[in-house]
Write a protein that binds this DNA or RNA. Structure first.
Length: 547
RNA sequence: GCGCCAGUAGCUCAGUUGGAUAGAGCAACGGCCUUCUAAGCCGUCGGCCGGGGGUUCGAAUCCUCCCUGGCGCACCA
């Protein structure tokens, strides 16, 4: 019953009847200017070449037939050959019935058709607490998971734990250094180590659990520090993510890849297919065959495998788990890594199934002044601190208001402000306002009307229709967000819905209206509140009932 | 030097599988609370869409060459 769907079915039928083929690039969408009607189609222009006729003439043919549709009030032809449709008022009014009937399910799609899709995100090394940059990736990944589920995909969220390799060794050494310091041993400062206060706290715990740690070998001591450090930090990461409303279904360990022999398996597979080769005492992957700039080393001449080697094995493992699509969310500073990872996925027979989303850096500011961040130097603003200060809702909405691949200034003072520079409150306020109305309505024994044609017919002002048209578009917003893997589309939609609601609120009084009209308007507003809450839930932002 | 991403109103940004006169918010200025939350609404001002060429009925969007900014270019992770 949605306008776009209805018109597309009709237009496809007419095009077929005329012996033409539906052009894949044809779109039906609301025009940017209301004067062009409710929905606009470019199909006549797209058909020009195929039909060997002038676009406007094709448009005439189509318009004549389209006028027979009982839900189409008028069809105009404009510009180079646009077909502009105005739907009947009662068509739009039915929207309220559909939204009310479907409730929370409104906006759910069958786009994904149950396909298995994995979203891997955050995946920060367990060497320190999450900082604000991780927060952006976390918000994006979690929201994307919610959107893809809504769109009908079978989605699994995963965190890849880099619990093997050099970074973990440095973590162990950093803690051991602090342990010795606490014991007043005046240890030599390691060349490269994590300097944050949390390392000292972990060192305290280590000493408490292993008072005799320094009696054993250096290796054993480092191993103990590493293990306690990692589990402590990982627990902290889990807590911080939970407080931020972010969930992962699977925590996948890099160590387990090696232990299960998956890396070796990858090596022999590549060797067998001729895509791996020995040179200069190292083992290489011929990634240049798949568009990468150069070949890459998987096993160094000193015998260690590279990070890339386990990453190939990891992705191989993902595809073997049956995912049709694998989404990786990475920091934009890793963009140089994309071509080789794509090459690897192609080499192991999964071309085009990896989608990499790059999340650009977050510049943390306070009152316009930058706050420097570096895990190593131990000076950073943690995600936890930021969430504690500004709230999870405001932080998430800020992260999800912009395209992920452009840089983001995150000003702590700004995000606390209640202005349109910080639109989370604007959207939440729309929801709270409606809830407040509903409470007042109950006090005076008024309640939303049932979706009868008589009740719906009372929703006949331009303000009513503006809201109804926007509600009708919600599933399109979900679809666009899912297809584009772009949660910010939901955020933009919500701002527009909130804006239209606030305008309605100012112009159309509800509780003072005559009883039937009041009930009809309550019905409409209940639908709006439902869709606002629905959309906010896709962003992982709460919909408060009062503010 | 090579590559990727960005450059749209004073500011922050939408809009980019080519569509109609390029949109919001903020800021500035001017209005609206004796009725449901003013965290709101209405109005005015504001643009060679970084620049030059090209492709076509039509370009912010595609191609090409420049300019500016960010980030990458390891037998690091």
């Amino acid at each position: 019953m949605r306008a776009k769907q209805h018109l597309e079915e009709m237009l496809r039928r007419i095009v077929t009847e005329n012996g033409w083929e539906w052009p894949e690039k044809a779109v039906i969408e609301p025009p940017k200017d209301k004067q062009f009607g409710d929905m606009s189609a470019n199909v006549a222009m797209m058909l020009a070449k195929q039909a060997k006729k002038a676009p406007r003439q094709i448009a005439e043919d189509i318009a004549e037939k389209a006028r027979n549709d009982s839900f189409v009030a008028s069809v105009d032809i404009a510009g180079p050959g646009f077909l502009n449709f105005t739907m009947t008022t009662d068509f739009w009014q039915k929207t309220a019935g559909i939204v009310a009937e479907q409730g929370d399910a409104y906006g759910s799609l069958s786009l994904g058709d149950g396909k298995k899709i994995q979203v891997e995100y955050v995946s920060a090394n367990p060497t320190g607490p999450l900082h604000i940059g991780h927060g952006r990736g976390a918000a994006l990944g979690d929201s994307l998971v919610r959107i893809l589920k809504k769109a009908g995909y079978n989605v699994e969220a995963e965190y890849y734990v880099n619990d093997a390799g050099r970074q973990m060794l440095i973590l162990g050494q950093s803690i051991l250094y602090r342990v010795r310091q606490i014991q007043n041993l005046n240890p030599a400062e390691p060349e490269d180590y994590y300097k944050g206060d949390y390392i000292r706290e972990i060192a305290d715990d280590v000493l408490e659990q292993h008072p005799d740690i320094l009696d054993g070998t250096e290796e054993d001591a480092t191993e103990i520090c590493k293990s306690i450090g990692m589990s402590t930090i990982l627990d902290g990461i889990r807590e911080d993510l939970m407080a931020f409303g972010v969930h992962h279904d699977v925590w996948f360990s890099e160590k387990s890849l090696v232990a299960d022999g998956m890396v070796d398996e990858t090596f022999s597979d590549l060797r067998a297919s001729g895509l791996g080769f020995e040179k200069d005492n190292a083992f290489w992957f011929k990634s240049s065959d798949f568009g990468d700039d150069k070949d890459r080393v998987l096993r160094k001449s000193n015998g260690d495998t590279t990070y890339f080697a386990s990453d190939i094995a990891y992705h191989d493992n993902k595809f073997k788990r049956g995912f049709d699509v694998v989404v990786d969310i990475w920091g934009a500073d890793h963009h140089g890594y994309v071509p080789r990872m794509q090459a690897a996925c192609e080499a192991i027979g999964n071309k085009g199934k990896l989608h990499v989303i790059l999340v650009n850096l977050v510049n943390l500011l306070r009152d316009g002044k930058p706050i420097a961040m570096s895990t190593r130097a131990g000076q950073f603003e943690t995600l936890k601190d930021v969430v504690d200060e500004v709230g999870a809702d405001a932080a998430r909405f800020m992260f999800l208001s912009r395209k992920s691949d452009s840089g983001l200034d995150f000003d702590l003072e700004l995000v606390k402000q209640k202005t349109m520079d910080n639109p989370v409150y604007y959207v939440q306020y729309a929801h709270a306002r409606i809830c407040s109305l509903m409470r007042k309505a109950r006090e005076q024994q008024a309640q939303p009307a049932d979706c009868t044609p008589e009740a719906l017919a009372l929703l006949n002002t331009e303000h009513d229709l503006d809201l109804l048209r926007l509600l009708d578009r919600y599933p399109d917003a979900v679809e666009a967000a899912a297809r584009g893997e772009s949660p910010h589309i939901i955020s933009i939609y919500l701002r527009e819905l909130a804006s239209t609601l606030h305008r309605y609120y100012t112009n159309c009084h509800v509780l003072s209206a005559e009883a039937d009209l009041c009930a009809a308007r309550l019905l409409l507003l209940a639908c709006v509140a439902g869709v606002v809450a629905n959309g906010l839930s896709l962003l992982g932002v709460s919909a408060p009932e009062r503010m």
